[in-house]
Write a protein that binds this DNA or RNA. Structure first.
Lengths: 228, 228
DNA sequence: GAATAACGTGACCGCTTAGTCACCATTCTA
DNA sequence: TAGAATGGTGACTAAGCGGTCACGTTATTC
């Protein structure tokens, strides 16, 4: 992990009181967000070091410096904490994918498709760089069995992969991708390759700008796919 | 998971008594191997369903139908059980890589390199098909933090990736791979892509022969890499 | 064939874990 | 400004966990 430590993510509290939540920006609202951010930051450090399934609530609250009862005031359990903490990354990924779909709607040349894919890869790399810890956890756990506290990450991964397949199919339907190669294989293979390379950058196996690495990689794979 | 359920793997007991192990093929030897195979089979089922870190010794021995004290007679802890159970897959992967290196030594044409890589991919796919449960667990956990019971899987993944980079570098040194593309990026991206596709086959997201899918994928990536 | 190491066992031990709770403090609503 | 909802707490509860143990059985060694 690079030495740059980003600020705790701005997460949306999943459980806000119904009757007297206090005004937006009020003391209660601010305290609630701060506490939740502290819990998320503590959980992130521990999940990176040990893996989600091995981290206990006691470890999280000790690292965050809050009482155990507070943990359960803000989240139902560890799974809900995971769902909460990955929201910023999930939002950024969804934004990148939405952007790519929009660009595809108005694309009209095969060369433009390459640019769209490269831009998508760059935006996903930017999302990763904005949330290096979360992305590392995401990449570590995305293929886990879909049970327990890792489930929100697996669900996000499933969603991203479905979107990638949908995007690739739309490209073919627009006549921008002419290949006999299986669309799902190419979409999932590209994700698998990009994920591994991103993971290498985030764990300092590689140096340099990951944006460059993953956009070049996407071109390489697209060229290979087109040659079929 | 396909309905075909392979027999329990033949694993080598990690802890054999020193003084009176009994003769090879004797009652004790046979019982020891059978018990260990039962523990491995039970663990595999549970690891697939819940993930390694969430499975307890009590669950494993209950599923295997052996007493808890027996568990500790045959393995030190869950980590050693994981190391033991993945040996057949590890051996098969090492054999495939060794084969590819040997083939590379006597290769003399760029087209032969494609054949070597395809053959390697096919052999790794065969290894996966011979051990579908183990491979699925491997693919689920290979990027986990390198602590705790998942460590043997992470170590195997690191070894396989180093070997892939070494193989790619040897190909370039033999003049069989001419590209300006970063060798490590191409090696790890190919593994990342192949792993995702293999995972799709093993979890029945894809039908058809995974050998065909991954060998074609390797060609696609190699073609893309060479075009740089 | 007697002796010895290895095996099989499941209760047990000490500790850990998720989640709750009752009480006091704080914030905000009417 | 009084009252009510919300927050903060850490001891507590009930259950679970890793790992051990002492004893009887079995297999093998000399």
């Amino acid at each position: 992990m690079s030495s740059r430590k980003p600020p705790p993510p701005r997460v949306e509290p999943p459980n806000v009181p119904r009757e007297r939540p206090g005004p937006a920006g009020g003391r209660r609202d601010a305290n609630r967000r701060r506490r939740l951010a502290e819990l998320c930051a503590a959980a992130e450090e521990l999940f990176l070091a040990e893996g989600i399934a091995a981290v206990t609530v006691d470890q999280i609250v000790a690292r965050a410096g809050v009482a155990k009862g507070s943990f359960y005031r803000y989240v139902r359990d560890t799974e809900e904490l995971v769902a909460t903490m990955i929201q910023p990354l999930a939002d950024a990924m969804r934004a990148a994918i939405t952007c790519a779909h929009a660009a595809l709607e108005s694309a009209d040349a095969a060369a433009t498709l390459t640019a769209i894919y490269r831009d998508l890869a760059a935006q996903l790399a930017d999302a990763a760089l904005a949330h290096p810890g979360l992305t590392t956890i995401y990449l570590q756990e995305a293929r886990a069995p879909r049970v327990g506290p890792r489930r929100p990450i697996c669900a996000l991964s499933d969603e991203v992969e479905r979107a990638a397949v949908t995007l690739t199919r739309a490209a073919r339907d627009h006549g921008l991708l002419r290949t006999d190669y299986d669309l799902r294989v190419s979409a999932l293979a590209a994700i698998g390759a990009a994920d591994r390379i991103l993971f290498a950058h985030l764990s300092d196996e590689f140096s340099g700008d990951p944006r460059d690495t993953v956009t070049d990689l996407v071109s390489v794979i697209l060229d290979g796919v087109r040659s079929r």
